[in-house]
Simulated scan of single mutants.
Amino acid sequence: MRGNHTQTKFILLGIADRPCEQTPPFVLFLLIYIVTLVGNFAIFTLVWVSPSLHTPMYFFLAHFAFTDICYSTVISPRMLADLLSEDKTISFTGCMTQFLTFAFFATIECYLLAIMAYDRQVAICQPLLYVTIISSRVCWQLIASSYLFAFLSAIIYTWCVFGGSFCGPNRIDHFFCDVVPVLKLVCSDTHSSEMVIFAFVTINVVGTSMVILLSYISILCTVLRVCSAQSRARAFHTCASHLMSVSLFFGTSFFMYLQPPSSHRSLDKVASIIYTMVTPMLNPFIYSLRNKEVKGALLKCRRNSSATGNIEEFCHLGHEQSMCSVKANGALKY
């Protein structure tokens, strides 16, 4: 890292200032973290032990659940410990490591959301070509590319944030080491670093959100053309729940990282809580645990029998279109 780092440690100011205000958020965030771990770990384990879930959709969901576990664990344990401790210091290396891992998993989350939206778009709009387009090899290539791009982006983010000179205050007005509060402590000029961060956030966040938006628009157009009224209602309900989770994650990310540092206000911590803690907790319920096939796999594991739950399709077309022939290949398991 470049620059003269005279600071060897930082102080995280956290969420609450007074000790009497720290117990309620500690209990709340502990419950959120436990639900996040249990829900995502259940999905991750279930996908790998249930042969009926060995499809591209659940392959991506398993990686998504793993990312949510890691993504939340980077932030939550440290924040919970600080709520109970008077000593909120974190070393320079520890702060840099926390930010690097946070940026890595947050970027992976963006790419996985885009990949899952694209997977749904191909399954619904091009069902006869689904097996060819979303092959096992393509699945691994998409996952590997996501991890590679996320790692390179995280390195660049970390270089830009921690590459300056920290010779002044060391109090970070946040509950973890994030871009804006850390850059405020840099003594040297940060304009070039901010421009680089803005450019990469635009590529990673705006680019993936556009893929998601276009994919769901294509899905809805296809559903409106070929589905019955009942099927359209189910599809809209599913799309709405997915888009709610996506909107929470990307909306708060836009708010945090695509505005000038001088524009940030007290709502930054609220926005950070939403995309670091709330969305990882909601994702298992929105993407998996509401799915009848997942419930069937859970029931099968619990009873240890050969019976499986019935499949609830993302868009049940019955015999209306040949699209539903993809069911036999496990492509439309939504």
Score class of each variant (00 low, 15 high):
residue 35 V to A: 14
residue 328 A to P: 01
residue 105 F to D: 15
residue 203 I to R: 02
residue 326 V to T: 12
residue 71 Y to T: 08
residue 24 P to V: 13
residue 11 I to K: 15
residue 131 V to A: 09
residue 173 D to W: 00
residue 244 M to I: 05
residue 24 P to F: 01
residue 17 D to V: 05
residue 86 E to P: 00
residue 181 P to Q: 04
residue 203 I to M: 05
residue 301 C to V: 11
residue 66 F to D: 07
residue 238 T to D: 13
residue 137 R to W: 15
residue 219 I to K: 02
residue 293 E to Y: 11
residue 93 T to F: 05
residue 226 V to L: 02
residue 81 A to V: 03
residue 127 P to A: 08
residue 267 L to F: 08
residue 148 L to T: 14
residue 283 N to L: 06
residue 330 G to M: 00
residue 286 I to K: 04
residue 82 D to Q: 05
residue 52 S to M: 02
residue 201 V to A: 06
residue 35 V to D: 03
residue 2 R to D: 14
residue 60 F to K: 06
residue 130 Y to K: 04
residue 205 V to G: 05
residue 213 L to S: 08
residue 326 V to P: 08
residue 20 C to H: 09
residue 214 L to F: 15
residue 110 C to W: 00
residue 247 S to P: 03
residue 256 M to S: 06
residue 77 P to N: 10
residue 171 R to P: 01
residue 202 T to V: 00
residue 34 I to M: 12
residue 236 F to E: 07
residue 96 M to Y: 02
residue 313 E to L: 11
residue 300 K to R: 12
residue 102 F to L: 06
residue 109 E to D: 08
residue 329 N to T: 07
residue 169 P to L: 07
residue 67 T to V: 14
residue 45 T to N: 08
residue 214 L to M: 10
residue 302 R to A: 10
residue 332 L to R: 13
residue 321 Q to A: 13
residue 328 A to Q: 04
residue 74 V to Y: 09
residue 312 E to C: 11
residue 62 A to K: 03
residue 4 N to D: 14
residue 300 K to E: 13
residue 276 T to A: 14
residue 321 Q to D: 15
residue 65 A to P: 01
residue 267 L to I: 15
residue 183 L to V: 00
residue 256 M to W: 06
residue 35 V to E: 09
residue 39 G to R: 08
residue 212 I to Y: 00
residue 267 L to V: 15
residue 106 A to R: 02
residue 255 F to P: 01
residue 324 C to L: 12
residue 115 I to N: 06
residue 88 K to T: 01
residue 161 V to T: 07
residue 102 F to Y: 05
residue 264 H to L: 06
residue 185 L to H: 09
residue 34 I to Q: 11
residue 252 T to R: 01
residue 292 K to M: 08
residue 128 L to P: 01
residue 125 C to R: 12
residue 65 A to K: 04
residue 164 G to M: 13
residue 136 S to C: 04
residue 319 H to G: 15
residue 100 L to V: 03
residue 127 P to H: 10
residue 157 Y to S: 10
residue 326 V to K: 13
residue 327 K to S: 04
residue 74 V to K: 10
residue 288 S to I: 00
residue 186 V to Y: 15
residue 311 I to W: 12
residue 26 F to T: 14
residue 52 S to W: 00
residue 9 K to D: 02
residue 194 E to M: 07
residue 234 R to N: 13
residue 291 N to F: 01
residue 331 A to F: 10
residue 304 N to Q: 11
residue 245 S to R: 00
residue 151 F to P: 02
residue 83 L to P: 01
residue 94 G to S: 04
residue 43 I to M: 10
residue 99 F to C: 11
residue 161 V to E: 07
residue 300 K to Q: 14
residue 187 C to N: 10
residue 265 R to L: 09
residue 95 C to E: 05
residue 210 M to F: 12
residue 18 R to H: 09
residue 313 E to G: 09
residue 231 S to A: 14
residue 184 K to S: 14
residue 178 D to M: 03
residue 324 C to E: 13
residue 247 S to V: 12
residue 202 T to F: 08
residue 135 S to D: 09
residue 283 N to G: 06
residue 24 P to C: 07
residue 293 E to F: 03
residue 235 A to S: 05
residue 327 K to E: 02
residue 240 A to P: 05
residue 58 Y to H: 05
residue 304 N to P: 03
residue 10 F to N: 09
residue 154 A to M: 06
residue 290 R to F: 00
